[in-house]
Design a protein around this nucleic acid. Structure first.
Length: 440
DNA sequence: TCTGGGGTCCTTCACCCA
DNA sequence: TCTGTGGGTGAAGGACCC
């Protein structure tokens, strides 16, 4: 999908169509998740600090992500893909590999192109959004083709033309070559895919290690035999928070770790999983990151056990100077538990569950009024007003919230009105379907 | 105002054990 | 008993991806 989060927001809000839209964290340490193509013209791109994006595109619309909505749109698209083949491998909310050959959906370039164009039409009909399609004989090449197809296009790489096409491209085009590997290769005088192939496998293994070297050499020759895998089992579950301001108070650090442990367990249980290895992650004031882990005798999904392990791990970490991020994760997953008797007795008594439920009610620390308004009326979220109907939050502050009243089906931008943040006639609302009549 | 959140995979090193 | 050796596992960190 093209600029997925931003495109969903534009489809949902007629006044933003054709405008620069930036979706991401709006706090002081937020980064850009997705920028619309109109915003990219100003140099805004994913993973850029939000402050920098605001300097580059001060007039863009800045919205917080609405993952629930994106998930439902994603599910509509994935359902279309599964209609083409049972072998669908989702990579993220907005990308997936589909094995067209396995299902007999396509057998040559012509039939593949037909399927691809049909899919793009269906995606537009069902979601109102643009999707791009890359067609090729392997996952790596299909991915490269889909990047080339964006925005709103289709690219097919004809069998036999792969190496000629890849050769002159920069090494960063290959999956697995990021900034570090790119630099490493450049220092060795390798900047193009052809130069990787010329360097030879031994040299790449020497430069990058066994696994990475072998894999990259094969990719450079356009060899990629990785199958499309429909079912991927989860290997770890984690939660983390970056704080607007570094935390110095050791007690507060301890409390945050407990909360994260509970959140992590809730996710773990939600997925019907348990795990053996507890991981604590700490990013310090200077951005240095360290992890500490502990492996239990058996898998657990008991909040008390995870909390205790996380607290033990924290003891071995020096947090003087302040921490900007804390995280708790569980790996070594199993779909069963094997608790010690004490923990099992606790769980049987319902204590763990009760504590988890209670955690939701923990009062927020007294915060600035502005922050409260922003949490209650996040920019971009849908609202309903008793008199004016459905709209979305354009912004809030100084005890006021500004709403634009429009729906995905509106043909022109809606009117804007401002209310007091505690206006009783205004309430949060669920997003409306992007295409009227097609529920997400 | 520098740098999110949730993952995966790989490498290195230490330790235990046969 | 001492000295290697090699596998398995755990811990920590790094790179990468969306």
């Amino acid at each position: 999908m093209d600029a997925f989060f931003a495109s969903v927001e534009q489809a949902s809000k007629p006044s933003l169509r054709g405008k620069a839209v930036v979706v991401g964290g709006l706090g002081p340490r937020g980064v850009v998740a997705t920028a619309s193509y109109e915003a990219r013209v100003f140099g805004v791109h994913s993973a850029m600090p939000m402050a920098q994006a605001r300097r580059l595109a001060p007039n863009a619309a800045y919205l917080v992500p609405r993952f629930g909505l994106y998930r439902s749109v994603s599910e509509q698209v994935m359902a279309l893909l599964r209609g083409l083949s049972p072998l669908v491998e989702p990579l993220s909310l907005d990308e997936a590999f589909v094995d067209l050959e396995a299902a007999g959906a396509a057998w040559d370039g012509r039939s593949a192109r037909l399927v691809g164009e049909g899919l793009r039409t269906d995606i537009r009909t069902v979601t109102g959004l643009c999707g791009s399609v890359g067609l090729a004989a392997s996952k790596m090449l299909a991915k490269i083709a889909s990047e080339q197809a964006k925005p709103d296009g289709l690219v097919l790489i004809e069998p036999g033309t792969e190496r000629a096409m890849l050769g002159p491209m920069p090494v960063r085009i290959l999956p697995g070559v990021g900034p570090a590997t790119g630099d490493h290769l450049r220092r060795a005088g390798i900047t193009t895919v052809d130069e990787i192939a010329e360097a030879g496998e031994d040299e790449l293994v020497r430069l990058l290690g066994k696994a990475h070297g072998h894999a990259l050499y094969a990719m450079a020759l356009a060899h990629d035999e990785r199958p499309v895998v429909a079912e991927r089992e989860t290997k770890s579950v984690s939660v983390e928070d970056t704080y607007d301001v570094d935390i110095h108070d050791r007690m507060r650090v301890g409390l945050e770790v407990q909360r994260l442990a509970d959140r992590c367990v809730r996710r773990l249980r939600g997925a019907g999983l348990s795990g053996r290895t507890i991981v604590l992650k700490v990013r310090r004031y200077d951005f240095s990151t360290l992890t500490r882990s502990e492996t239990l005798r058996g898998p657990t999904d008991d909040p008390a056990v995870v909390r205790e392990a996380a607290a033990r791990l924290l003891e071995s970490v020096d947090t003087t100077g302040g921490v900007r991020l804390l995280g708790v994760g569980v790996s070594g997953l199993a779909d069963y538990t094997q608790e010690d008797l004490f923990a099992q007795a606790q769980a049987a008594a319902g204590e763990g569950a009760a504590e988890l439920a209670a955690e939701e009610d923990v009062a927020e620390p007294v915060a600035e009024q502005e922050a409260v308004a922003e949490r209650r009326w996040p920019a971009g979220h849908d609202v309903r007003h008793a008199e004016y109907g459905h709209g979305w939050v354009q912004g809030s502050g100084l005890g006021r919230v500004t709403v634009r009243f429009e729906t995905p089906g509106s043909s022109e931008p809606g009117r804007v009105r401002t209310f007091r943040v505690e206006d009783p006639e205004l309430e949060p609302a669920e997003p409306l379907p992007l295409v009227p009549g097609v529920p997400a």
